[in-house]
Amino acid sequence: MVDEVMRSTQRPEVIDATLAALDPDRDRPPSVMEVDSLTLRFGEKTILSDVSVAFPRGTVTALIGPTGSGKSTFLRTLNRMNDRVSGFRHDGDVTLDGVSVWAPHQDLLSVRRRVGMLFQRPNPFPMSIRDNVVAGVKAHGIAKGRQLDVVAETRLREVGLWDAVKDRLGESPFRLSGGQQQLLCLARALAVGPEMLLLDEPTSSLDPGSTESVENLMRQLTPALTLIVVTHNLGQARRVSQSTILFYDGRLIEHGATSELFDAPRDPRTQRYVNGLMG
């Protein structure tokens, strides 16, 4: 009987079916986030025009483009960080698991919990290292008391910071190096259990060593998470992403597999940008 079961479960179609049934994301759309003809204005100024793109679950997408091309604004729209900017108006939609992030019944706080963010400059809070990691966890009531210490240790280990800070969890985060501060912010973002992470030039203020650890982490975080990273570092886009999007003047110019976009760009502007002929 046991043998029979063992044999039957070794058949590929059974294994695939079993795996598919076990996949926690099986009932969800293949794209965790979809942007549908998004046009965005601050007052009279149009920042983004008619951007449509889907972010497949468990992938890293790089957003590249010259300064002022709208890629950071685009990123900050995805977790509604732009809502409070004066004159913010939008047409089109951004959906998270098929539900608009602006839907009336959509809870902004839970959108932001599910879509985490890492900023250009590390921004730890003025509290101890441990309290920084669990700040979001406490805010959402995910854990409390002794559990918080476990969360802190787990997340600090996850980002590879534990050994460096385990003896000074009660100390100020501002004594850490810039790279360590950024990893701490990453631990803080991961602690609330997001499905996506938006990274806004996460390594532009870091030294090469810290940049490498952040990039390694980005690779490890997929496919559990979906990552979107804005970067001016084309090498980084090549190293970490599966697909790349070029923004130019508020428009999505080209979107494709990273290797294709870099090696065989279709649009002349993409060609000039990836070859360093355009800032």
Partner: peptide
């Protein structure tokens, strides 16, 4: 208070 603190708190989904 630096804007980055407020943004950090917003981005974590703090009320």
């Amino acid at each position: 208070v630096p804007t980055s603190y407020r943004e950090g708190a917003d981005a974590l989904g703090m009320a």
